[in-house]
Design a protein around this nucleic acid. Structure first.
Lengths: 223, 223
DNA sequence: TCCCGATCTGGACAGTCGTCAAGAATTCTC
DNA sequence: GAGAATTCTTGACGACTGTCCAGATCGGGA
């Protein structure tokens, strides 16, 4: 099972040494992401994906069992690289204030640079409430996003010498709500929206801080 | 222009006194909501809506210009009554603690009772990022939801003798994030999810409180 | 060079969709 | 009850969808 896909499927052969097969899957995923990000899940057809790729529409079923497998593979493919987005912020910041600054900047930056991908993610997550076949992948990706946010929040508390005042799910839910709100408004008032988001993050992050951290090693938040 | 629809359209005649016309539109909206809530926006066809109604599929275009108008009308129709959901909580609570209790209960209750409607709303809001024709209606509804939440938060602060520490958009964004997270998880673990949501609201609401309220004119006596 | 499997193409299929219009059925008016 | 305006049904149209498949094309081993 290669790094990205959990539900491998067709795999006609296993001959080629370094797996040209997975390479093509990734290539198709790139094209699919471009189309999905622009049109959304419902309005994206396999023919349209193929049009934005070097291939014809028939080839999709050579590498993927059906449309759903391609879409899930593509989103996993994207999210796999983007969950590390804030790891640099976590690793390099030397003070709580610096971490907040860089975290807020990075949030705004990713809306500016990858808005279509984020729209796609929220689209897919919403569709998973109606389409059971999407649930598993969505749940798993959502958990990795929550972990990503929690790395930021817990490091933030650590740098501030405090304990996080809220469990991971709450911190993630709240920040995700603000992020989604910004993504929605971004289409109308781009720069103003991003500035507002950064300011909101500065306002909100201190709320995640609880009492002074225990001096003991590895102390967990009380919650 | 009647209470619900902003974009009236076909209106073949203006003869009937009490407007049988709007009555049928509302009736179709009810059927549409049932189907949309179950299947989601993308998977709902006009024929399916008609199947869940006393009418045949052709009648839709007699009362609505196209599918989009029916959908937007339906969601407005639903949201128009549901934005008053917490007004009783705001009006009747006599202490900050009571308000939080009742607010949290009501949030959980509406997920239990109207989950499909909430799924539909998030679906439509997400689709509006891809389909410009949905933007206007979504933006407007979102604003009324933010107002609804703000009535709760500001009254809460008032009862606590404090000032709200965050602007309406932030309070709404954060609570909406938690609500959406609960809605997503509700399918798997209903009761556990609702209990967690209520607990989260209890944790989070105090964060919305800032410094002591000014004793300025019109301020209600503190508890 | 030839061959054979891997890869890819383009068309076909069966189904669904939104929309429309002709006419039946219903309801209202006089 | 007759006539007219309405409401509603039914069937059709063209466009689009995911999927499949027969055959063209490609590329590497003999």
């Amino acid at each position: 099972m290669s790094g990205v896909g959990v539900t491998e499927a067709p795999r006609r052969r296993a001959a080629r040494p370094v797996d040209k097969f997975d390479e093509r899957r990734a290539q198709l995923a790139e094209s699919a992401l471009q189309t999905l990000g622009t049109l959304g899940y419902a309005r994206t057809s396999l023919r349209e994906i193929a049009n934005n790729s070097p291939f014809s529409h028939g080839v999709v079923h050579y590498y993927f069992q059906d449309k759903l497998e391609l879409v899930v593979y593509s989103v996993r493919y994207y999210k796999a690289r983007c969950v590390t987005r804030y790891d640099g912020v976590v690793a390099d910041s030397t003070s709580a204030a610096e971490l907040v600054d860089r975290f807020a900047d990075r949030l705004a930056e990713t809306i500016r640079d990858e808005a279509p991908m984020h729209r796609l993610w929220y689209d897919l997550r919403t569709q998973s409430m109606f389409e059971a076949s999407l649930r598993e992948a969505v749940t798993q990706i959502d958990a990795t996003l929550q972990d990503m946010i929690w790395r930021v929040v817990s490091r933030y508390a650590e740098l501030a010498g405090r304990t996080p005042s809220l469990p991971p799910a709450v911190a993630y839910g709240m920040l995700d709500g603000l992020f989604q709100q910004a993504l929605l408004a971004y289409g109308d008032e781009p720069e103003q929206t991003l500035a507002a988001l950064a300011a909101q993050v500065h306002d909100v992050m201190p709320m995640f801080l609880g009492g002074p951290a225990q001096a003991a090693a590895g102390a967990r938040p009380t919650v």
